[in-house]
Computed example of a mutant assay.
Amino acid sequence: MPPAYVLNRLDRRANDRSRPDWIAELRQHPEARLVRISGEATLMQHGQLVTTWSDAEDASVFLGLDAEGRPWFACQTAETPDLRDLRSLALEEALPPEELGILAQARSILQWHDRRRYCSNCAGRLEIADAGYRRHCPGCGMNHFPRTDPVVIMVVRHARGILLGRQAAWKPGMYSALAGFVEPGETIEDAARREVFEEAGVRVGSVRYVSSQPWPFPSNLMIGLVGEALSQEITRDAAELEDARWFSREETLLMLARRHPDGLYAANPYAIAHELITAAITDWPT
Rank of each mutant, 00 (worst) to 15 (best):
W170K: 12
E198Y: 12
V226M: 09
F181D: 02
C140I: 08
A168E: 11
R258V: 11
I37P: 00
W72E: 00
Q105E: 11
L253I: 14
P172S: 11
E98N: 14
A279K: 12
D114V: 08
D55Q: 13
P30T: 08
T286K: 14
P138K: 05
H113R: 13
H260E: 04
S231R: 12
L221V: 12
E127S: 09
L100F: 13
T42V: 13
S38H: 14
C75G: 07
P2L: 15
I109W: 03
E40D: 07
G101E: 04
Y175H: 09
A168P: 04
P146R: 03
D283C: 07
R249T: 06
G224T: 07
A238E: 13
L254M: 09
T235G: 07
I128G: 00
E99C: 06
L89T: 10
G64R: 01
V156D: 01
L110Q: 04
G263P: 01
M142I: 11
G224M: 02
A129Q: 14
T52I: 06
V61E: 00
V151F: 06
G39V: 10
R17H: 04
T282C: 01
L89Y: 04
M174V: 15
T278W: 03
D16K: 15
Y265N: 03
M222T: 08
W170A: 10
T187E: 02
R147D: 05
G47L: 06
T148S: 08
W53P: 00
P269C: 06
